[in-house]
Each structure stands twice: as structure tokens, then as C-alpha cells.
Design a protein around this nucleic acid. Structure first.
Lengths: 154, 154
DNA sequence: GCACATAGTGAGTGTGCATCACGATATGCC
DNA sequence: GGCATATCGTGATGCACACTCACTATGTGC
């Protein structure tokens, strides 16, 4: 029965999910970061200095949550809040030097991790795996799961 | 550069991680369950009636955390606490009928999910994917990541 | 210029997880 | 037999995260 094999494959996927979650959470903790705060940092890196509102939308969480995350990141010296140049209601969040350095280091580790997973894998083997991963991600997407926060039409 | 492809593959893996986490969390919520409580249920299913201590060890969390999880599961009618037949300090946690039924249903959904991911996939395609998944899980394991809670020698 | 929308925050709630302190019970050893 | 010690579960407390609701300060459109 194919079902049995599929079941086993799902177990591998789930194990992967658990393992990676665990690994990331732990390595983050060493930098004094939590998963959510890191996600914010990651977003900030790709957007540049942003208002908290923009971060909330980008993360798909409430404005209040961002206030809390930025509170933490500011207290630990990763980011700073500055007044917005034109909108006096808003605040611009940007990296401190330390924050920028930590994010750069994380990027390096990201590459290292990719190497751990795929480094030295025979070309054809890697390609099938890559394609297979693409397919199951597509299948998940086709059922309505989306990576980015679900934005609804009003 | 192979690195670029590896990087892209890692992104797919990470997307998978996020997507699956999200999907499970949401579908669990419909049954009135949270991820942690569900993990406990899942463990209970494979061990049979257990003391809270045993559950804590099995989950790799503190005894106090199990108290909280069982509190919740008991309040919502999934499990019951009964006195341990021989050890008066301990409590045995076991399923209610409702709890057992929900777990059975989850098992069914598990199969459905496997079908969503892999159903109708050409044999050879599936096999390479399965093998590839196995390899990266192995690589993670080889770096010390373990599925089961890390138990140290004294 | 006033109604209404928007940025951010205080207060309060719920969930998950942790540690510390503690009472109740079990057990090993003299 | 009885005391030291280990173990089971829980109260209290703290942190991270996310939410809602209410509110202030500010921007914008008609």
C-alpha cells in the first residue's frame, strides 16, 4: 500500500519540522533572542527602517504585539526607535550597530545550515529533493496555506 | 554556485516548517486543542494511562508544565486523573471516551494529510523525495539534534 | 474646521513554558 | 521501626507571545 510509505514520509517531514524548530529556537536563545523578535529583525533587514505599523502588517500580528517586541529589542540593544521625519504619530524602528552585526552573523549561519543539509550531496539527488520539496510546498499552497500573513479584501 | 541552490532549498524547507506548523495549529484549534496538549494526547495514546511524571519525561518538559496541560485537558473533557493503584503520591492520566474519539479522528486526519502531500505522486518521484528527506533528517541527527527530549547522563 | 482614520500604548486575558518552594508520600538503610 | 532522602504533584511567580479594548496624539478628507 502506498499509504504506508506516505505515512512514513509524513513522519519524516514532521520530524524535520520539529528538529528545525528546536534548532533555531536554541541557537537564537544564545544571542538573547526569541523567535518572534528574530522574525521582526529579519523583516527589518529586508525593509530597512520601518514604522511599527509597517512591521505589524509585515509580520501579520497586531500593532500591540509589535510594541512589545520592539520594547524587548530596544531594551536589549538590537534596535532603536526614532521619531518619524514627517509623521509625528509614528516611530521609525532601525538597527543599532549591534543589531545589524547580529543579523549579519545570522545570515552567515543560515548559509552554514544550508551547507549542513545539502553540502556535498550528489547533483541529481539534490535536484530530485529540491523538486520534491517544491511540489509538496505547492500542494500545501493549493489548499490555501500561505506563507505571508493572510490579507483579506475588506 | 551550488550554494545558491542550497540556499533556495533551505528556504523551501523553512517554508514547509512554517506552513505545517500553521496548518496543524489551526486545525487543532478547531477541536479545542493546543499544540502542547495535543502532543500530550499523542504520547498518552502510545503509552496508555500514565503518571504525570512519566508524561513530563516523555514530553521533555517540567512536571509543573504537565500539571498545567492536564488541568486544561481535564477541564475540557479529554482526559481524567485517577489515583494510582499503588503509589498514593501519583495520579494516572487516561482518556475519556471523548478524548479517545478525538485522538482517533486526528489519526484519520493524519492519513489524509499524508495523502494531500504525497497522494498520486509518481513512484520514482516519491522515492527520491522520501530518500532525500531521510538524508537531511539524518544529517540533522548527526549534529546532535534529536527528536526525543535530550536525556543526559547524570 | 470638524469628522474620521491612523500610530502607538496601557490594561487586561489566555496559553505555554520555566523555576522555586512545599506538602504528601514512598523507600532505602541503619 | 524510624529517620534521611528521593519522588509526585501543585501553588506561586515570571517571561514570551499574541489578542482585544480603550485611549491619546496626530494626520487627512470633505
Amino acid at each position: 500500500m502506498a499509504e504506508q510509505r506516505h505515512y512514513a514520509a509524513l513522519d519524516r517531514v514532521l520530524e524535520l519540522v520539529v528538529l528545525i524548530n528546536k534548532d533555531m529556537t536554541e541557537s537564537l536563545a544564545k544571542d538573547g533572542l526569541t523567535p518572534s523578535r528574530t522574525t521582526l529583525l529579519w523583516l527589518l533587514r529586508s525593509t530597512g527602517p520601518s514604522t511599527q505599523r509597517a512591521l505589524a502588517d509585515g509580520l501579520g500580528v497586531s500593532a500591540r504585539t509589535v510594541t512589545g517586541l520592539v520594547d524587548g529589542l530596544e531594551a536589549t540593544g538590537f534596535v532603536v526607535r526614532q521619531p518619524h521625519p514627517t509623521d509625528r504619530r509614528a516611530l521609525l524602528v532601525s538597527f543599532t550597530e549591534h543589531g545589524a552585526a547580529v543579523v549579519a552573523e545570522m545570515e552567515r549561519q543560515h548559509g552554514e545550515f544550508a551547507d549542513l543539509l545539502f553540502g556535498g550531496m550528489p547533483e541529481d539527488r539534490f535536484e530530485s529533493l529540491y523538486a520534491g520539496l517544491g511540489e509538496i510546498v505547492d500542494r500545501l499552497r493549493s489548499v490555501g496555506l500561505t506563507f505571508t500573513p493572510t490579507e483579506e479584501p475588506s
